[in-house]
């Protein structure tokens, strides 16, 4: 019989080898996605290999670029955030599989549309590819889901490690509300913290 597993088990494990609680600025995140040479990356993502990481970085850059309005996806480390999302033991397996399948479809689309691998596309071709797939049902849906996670990354509390220095709020003059969460009560820890108490 299942018991209240969520509340009994520490879920530190799926934060991988990175402590989100140590302060975002010192974390060994990957080089940002503007870098083309993926071979030099110290890949720390649990769910993506280097090619998948590269593809997602490029897609996120197009979906949410750095521009005159504010920081872009790379600044908010949205691919790492998505990796964290997919590592959640509570995530629906279908949702997880959908995000990974979308990467596969993007790779296939690159071959169909430009007769080359995604990693060989130049910036213009990447923009064109995203424009084309966004007009297909699967593409629109998958890109839309990525945007949702990009939003979550930039608006989540700084303790989650993506909303660096609260810039996700600042560029929109957003007042985040107080009190802000403590390290033991963010999503990673809250089940273990509350579940370990005796009443």
């Amino acid at each position: 019989m299942n018991n209240n597993n969520n509340w009994l088990q520490s879920r530190r494990k799926f934060v991988r080898n990175i402590s989100f609680l140590a302060g975002a600025s010192s974390l060994p995140w990957l080089l940002n996605s503007c870098t083309d040479d993926v071979g030099e990356f110290e890949l720390t993502t649990k769910n993506f290999d280097s090619e998948q990481y590269y593809l997602l970085s490029k897609v996120h850059d197009v979906l949410f670029p750095k521009d005159q309005f504010g920081p872009g996806a790379a600044y908010f480390k949205t691919v790492e955030y998505l990796d964290w999302v997919l590592s959640d033991v509570n995530i629906d397996e279908e949702d997880k599989s959908y995000m990974l399948t979308g990467i596969k479809w993007m790779e296939e689309s690159a071959k169909e549309e430009f007769s080359k691998e995604f990693s060989r596309l130049d910036e213009i071709e990447i923009h064109e590819l995203i424009s084309r797939v966004s007009k297909q049902n699967w593409g629109e849906s998958w890109l839309s889901r990525n945007l949702t996670y990009i939003f979550e990354a930039q608006f989540s509390d700084v303790l989650y490690g993506s909303n660096i220095n609260g810039e996700g709020w600042k560029w929109l003059s957003h007042y985040p509300g107080y009190p802000r969460p403590t390290a033991d009560m963010i999503y990673d820890e809250i089940f273990a913290t509350i579940g370990s108490r005796s009443y």
Binding site: D88, E152, D157, R180, P181, I194, R197
Partner: peptide
């Protein structure tokens, strides 16, 4: 369910609105 006290509640959109806690 569990027992959250007043001091356990924060303005955390992930915990409150984006996941089932």
């Amino acid at each position: 369910g569990p027992w959250f006290k007043t001091e356990d509640f924060f303005k955390d959109e992930i915990v409150t609105s984006r996941r089932s806690v």
